[in-house]
């Protein structure tokens, strides 16, 4: 009764902001940088996407603005951690605090406004021809909005990039052993910068999904902690974009299952359900460190600043 097609469809929607942020954080961490500013970059993307959407009535400009805003937040972080080699944890946390304040400041005048009809129509669910006719699966996966489809595509593209291209291999090298990568004449700084910025842009899109499609209005602190779930999700997905796809929808489902359990006779406490994503993450962490599998462990150079002189 709880696990209906409507529930799974809603779980995908709830998981989509998580998916974008998780993909963004995966690509950042793959370059050896732990960016805890996800929440801040999501909020920056959410508010800028909303503002530009409202002013220009153009969904493309809104998405672009969100990505640029997320990327701009990431740029601050990249400058601090790559160029100045500052502590990554502190820089990331600062970015979260900054992004929260920035979005509240910019969004002051936007409160109470609703996204324009044109943009809401643009992001309304569309059926994919043929595929949406498959029973259940069609309704769950192929009767969604553009953002959700973009999420599928991005996860797959990112997987291909990371595992099937030489550039992706270079990225892994930078994250695992920047000194070796440097010797192989891979520009470590450039790789780090590019992927941190790309990661920030994806986080910005995740935030914009909330303000443009999901809610669709601006309210302060609209992400309500989803950025932190994304950080946990990266570990859950063991830095793998395909697993991130699955993990995001699972965590999205956990996020909303509470309401559906209420009234079904099952006495499960909402607070317990809120705990589950993190509990699962801890279990994954424990499993990884027990199995010592190279494939599933974090990039070896994660959160270690790279000094060429120290080689």
């Amino acid at each position: 009764m709880i696990l209906t097609a409507a529930f799974f469809s809603a779980a995908i929607v709830a998981g989509t902001p998580l998916l974008f942020a998780t993909l963004g954080e995966i690509i950042t961490e793959k370059a050896g940088n732990l960016n805890l500013g996800v929440e801040g970059m999501m909020l920056m993307g959410a508010v800028m996407g909303f503002m530009v959407g409202l002013k220009t009535n153009s969904p493309f400009l809104a998405i672009l603005a969100a990505a640029v805003a997320g990327g701009a937040g990431a740029f601050i972080y990249a400058f601090l951690t790559v160029t100045l080699r500052a502590n990554q944890v502190v820089s990331g946390l600062t970015l979260t605090i900054f992004g929260t304040g920035f979005s509240g400041f910019i969004g002051k005048g936007l409160v109470g406004e609703i996204m324009t009809v044109d943009i809401r129509k643009f992001f309304a669910p569309v059926e994919v021809p043929l595929l949406s006719k498959i029973p259940i699966v069609g309704q769950v996966f192929f009767h969604q909005d553009m953002f959700v489809y973009l999420g599928y595509i991005l996860a797959v593209l990112l997987g291909i990039y990371m595992y099937k291209t030489s550039k992706g291999l270079n990225l892994t090298a930078v994250g695992e052993n920047p000194a070796a990568a440097d010797v192989a004449s891979i520009s470590v700084s450039m790789y780090k910068y590019l992927h941190i910025l790309l990661g920030g842009a994806l986080c910005g899109l995740g935030g914009a999904y909330l303000s443009l499609v999901y809610v669709p209005a601006w309210q302060e602190n609209i992400t309500a902690g989803r950025g932190w779930i994304a950080v946990a999700l990266v570990i859950f997905a063991t830095w793998n974009p395909y697993k991130a796809l699955f993990g995001s929808y699972l965590f999205g489902g956990l996020d909303i299952i509470g309401f559906r359990i209420q009234g079904s006779g099952l006495a499960v406490n909402q607070y317990f359900i809120n705990m589950l994503p993190y509990l699962v993450t801890i279990i994954v962490l424990v499993t990884i460190s027990f199995r010592k599998s190279k494939k599933n462990s974090p990039p070896a150079g994660l959160s270690v600043p790279y000094f060429r002189e120290e080689r």
């Binding site: 909330l210 602190n221 309500a224 909303i256 309401f259 909402q270 607070y271």
Partner: peptide, 25 residues
């Protein structure tokens, strides 16, 4: 009247989800 709680005063997305669960029912 079907009643669901969200455990938050202020989270637009969660509140919307709770309403969607009620609507689906």
């Amino acid at each position: 009247v079907n009643f669901k709680t969200t455990q938050t005063w202020y989270d637009p997305a969660t509140e919307k989800e709770a309403a969607k669960a009620l609507l689906d029912a």
